[in-house]
Design a protein around this nucleic acid. Structure first.
Lengths: 168, 168
DNA sequence: AAATAATCGTTCGGGTACGAACAGTTTTAA
DNA sequence: TTAAAACTGTTCGTACCCGAACGATTATTT
C-alpha cells in the first residue's frame, strides 16, 4: 500500500499531463494520505481483531453504535456510521440472523425501527471493544502523544467542511 | 454523518458498559475521526465530481494510477490504490468495457498484465482531475494553510504504522 | 377532514470488495 | 534439468454498498 513512488515524482507526472494548469498539491497530499491512512488502519483492524469474531467493518460499526445508544433508530445508526440506509438494512439482516441484534417497529411512530443488542451481542462487544481499542492504540503508537488532540481536531474540521458541502 | 452525540457523552457510555476497564480515548478519537473524515470527503467527491462522469471511487483511483504511471502492472495498481487484486480485476473489467483502459499481457513476463489508458481515458482524466483537485481543495478549505504539511505527515505516519502491523 | 408533503425502512439492480482456490508463468533448489 | 517454490491475475462465493423507486406511516396544508 505505502506507495513506492515518491511524492515529488508523482507531482512531476501530474504536471507533465496537465501542462501549466494550477494544481493544489498540498490539498492533494492531505486527501490522498487521508484515504491511505483510513484504508490501512481499517484493513489492519479487519484482518486482526474483527476477523477473530468473523465481523466485517460495517457490521462492527453497527454493533458499536447500537451498543452505546440502544435502543436506537435505524436512521441514527446509518447517520452515525456514515453509510446509507440501504446498506444498513442488509448488514442488520446478517446481524439479526446471527442473533446479535433485534429489530422492533416503534409503537409511537410506525415508520421507525428500534434496534437493540441481544445478550449474546452485548457479551461479544464487552470482549471485542477492548481488543479493538488496543488495535486503535497500536495504529497511533508512533505518534507523539501530545499531537493526538490537534490531530483529531484537524480530522473533525475536514469532516465538518466536507459534510457542509453535501447540500448545495 | 457528523454524529449528533458529543464526545464526552460517548466516552461516558463506553465506560458505563466496561466498568473500570482502561480505554485509550485519545486513540479512539483519532481513529474514529479518521474514518469519519475519509468517509465524508469520499462521499462528497463521489456525489459531485465523480457522479458527473459516472465513476465509482475505486474506478477513479484506478484511472488515476494508470494515468500517472502507464504502462503499469496490475499488482502496482492494487498496491498503490489499497485494494485487493480480486477487486481490481472486477473494476478493470468495467473500465475496459467502457473503453477507458486496455490490458495486455507482458511479453517479458507472462504473469504480468500491463494496463494503459485509451485516448478516451486520457481525455477524461485531463478534464476530470482538475475538477477533482478543486474538490480536494474545498475539503481542506477551512484548515490553516500552514497546518496542511504536518497534517499530511501525521497521516503518513499512521499509514506506515498500520501497514507495518500487517505481517505479524 | 381531505389532499399534499415529508419521513422511514425495505427492495431492487448493478457495481464493488475480499479471501480462498486456481491455472499459468517464472524463479529457485536440489 | 527436473522438482519445488514463488508469483501474478482470474474466478468463485459471499457480503457489502449505493441511488432510485417503493409502500407504509406521520406531519402539514388548506
Amino acid at each position: 500500500m505505502a506507495g513506492q513512488h515518491t511524492l515529488d515524482e508523482t507531482e512531476r507526472q501530474v504536471q507533465a499531463r496537465l501542462g501549466d494548469l494550477k494544481i493544489d498539491f498540498e490539498a492533494m497530499a492531505v486527501t490522498s494520505n487521508l484515504f491511505r491512512a483510513a484504508n490501512s488502519v481499517r484493513n489492519y483492524l479487519e484482518r486482526t481483531v474483527l476477523a477473530e469474531h468473523d465481523l466485517s467493518w460495517t457490521a462492527f460499526v453497527v454493533l458499536w453504535v447500537v451498543w452505546i445508544w440502544e435502543p436506537v433508530e435505524s436512521r441514527v445508526i446509518a447517520e452515525e456510521g456514515g453509510f446509507s440506509k440501504a446498506t444498513l438494512t442488509g448488514v442488520m439482516q446478517t446481524l439479526e440472523g446471527r442473533g446479535l441484534i433485534t429489530r422492533t417497529r416503534s409503537r409511537k411512530d410506525g415508520r421507525l425501527v428500534l434496534v437493540k443488542l441481544t445478550a449474546k451481542g452485548r457479551k461479544m462487544m464487552k470482549q471485542l471493544f477492548p481488543e479493538f481499542n488496543k488495535g486503535e492504540q497500536l495504529a497511533v503508537a508512533d505518534l507523539k502523544r501530545s499531537d493526538l488532540g490537534s490531530f483529531a481536531d484537524l480530522l473533525r474540521a475536514v469532516t465538518l467542511t466536507a459534510d457542509s458541502q453535501k447540500t448545495f
